[in-house]
Nucleic acid binder design. Sequence first.
DNA 1: GCAAAAGTGTTCGGAGTACACCCATGT
DNA 2: ACATGGGTGTACTCCGAACACTTTTGC
Lengths: 281, 281
Amino acid sequence: MFGNNKSILYFAITLVSVENTITKSSRIREKRKSSKIVKELNKYISVDCVIFGFDYDNLNVLLVDRTLNNDVNGEVLFSDMTLTGNHIYEDEKIEDAASRVLFDLTGLEGIYLEQFKTFANPDRISKPNDRAWLLNDGRDPNKRIVSIGFFALLATQDVTLEWKGRNVKWVPVNEVKELAFDHNDILDEALIALRNKLLQEPIGFELLPDKFTLSQLQKVYEIILGTELDKRNFRKKVARMKYLIPLDEKQKGVAHKPARLYMFSCDVYENTRKDIFGFIV
Amino acid sequence: MFGNNKSILYFAITLVSVENTITKSSRIREKRKSSKIVKELNKYISVDCVIFGFDYDNLNVLLVDRTLNNDVNGEVLFSDMTLTGNHIYEDEKIEDAASRVLFDLTGLEGIYLEQFKTFANPDRISKPNDRAWLLNDGRDPNKRIVSIGFFALLATQDVTLEWKGRNVKWVPVNEVKELAFDHNDILDEALIALRNKLLQEPIGFELLPDKFTLSQLQKVYEIILGTELDKRNFRKKVARMKYLIPLDEKQKGVAHKPARLYMFSCDVYENTRKDIFGFIV
DNA sequence: GCAAAAGTGTTCGGAGTACACCCATGT
DNA sequence: ACATGGGTGTACTCCGAACACTTTTGC
């Protein structure tokens, strides 16, 4: 852009031997209950996590059933869905709170997580269902609740869900109906942030298993950006990204020519990224 | 990027006649005190505004003197600086609170303002000076304070400062010393957000008067991105941006060939931008 | 053998980059 | 007259865009 010397948007590449690279931090797959000591919860600050999961066909978001029953006769007053979120402990960092929500749901740590926007307008809890829900939960629906929005990226298949007995499920983002509170707004903003981030940094692989094929990666870009990409051009571009490392390993059990697997090298990426930043600043 | 059809990062241009364009909303220069009715302030939610001002030589940030005196003998306990910020009224939207801070300081409305990150970790008010300051102000330094960070862009020359008798001043961003609370972190993050935004959307002109020269605009990019740009290449690029409209007007009173003035057409920009978004989504 | 996705090369246009001189004004 | 910043064109390279056929596997 605008350039003298090297373009700022382009990535200078230095070669790093493949043996010295490290993939993204391996995830803890074993599940255990959150071992947090019970401390005071702040009822008016919450983190909301927009958890995106990709299943090779759709971009999904993780939603939680919210059903309010009549105390007396158990009649269902309403039933809808919310994003995943929770309140924070008084001495907890907000990033830790977001990681905790994610861990409680999925048993995974080291997931890509990014703060994208905060929602704190007074009218975000004005709908009758939301007010009833808060009252039932012992909260004051007239008090402002600050929600700090994070989005997380993971491969749907890496996860089996559980969350405190509540029903959670994956919903394709374009099939999401009306959600609780202002969660539709939060989801929309998360999608915008995700798109912008995807155009700026290579985070697409975060939605895939550690080893993935180029077609899978291409599909990530196509679905999030809502466009179709040319296979040959895409692969030429990937060839320039030295941090996407081809493995001597192929897909198995597919009814067609098996594709080569690739992995992302965080190490190579960080090294090459430093060069640009040193140049800009 | 990755392309089939048209590149997503490039701006499709449609021609719009200059007569139909509107510049950015004209700013109210007349000063008046904020006419807000006094309502309850929420002492634990604040907006912090990183107000950037450009003066053709430096990118500056607006800082406020913070001096704590001993109640008894008036001795100065410490003196440092903070970003501009304030608490929010219970029924106020956060964007409105940020606009209000900006208006109280500068008397300007319609300024470019963007939420960029929220700071809410419990250790952000751990420094002794900060704790003393909060105590003196009747607040509990052990309670978490959520600060929603905004940054604002304006031309230093468009503003004469006043803020409730407190001393405010412009400081070049690379001469900022240690600030109160975690305001150095907030400033750093604001700079990163500003850089990213500048690479993504044409907001450079927000740091300039309504009518500006191309050299001034170039300097905005050079200083914020920390790089040098070639004059001819920059001008070729600008020629492609149809929303930067050359005027039949020149600089006056300069001791060299007077430069042509340009303005930004928000109208043209929005129209051309729709084309791309319609294409992506 | 057939269905299904993997994999591969070339041409064209446009943008990024590097580079040097004359012009209009105020003092 | 001179100092100061304004304003302009060309050549090269690289990337983005468009486009079609062969290969390998499972069934």
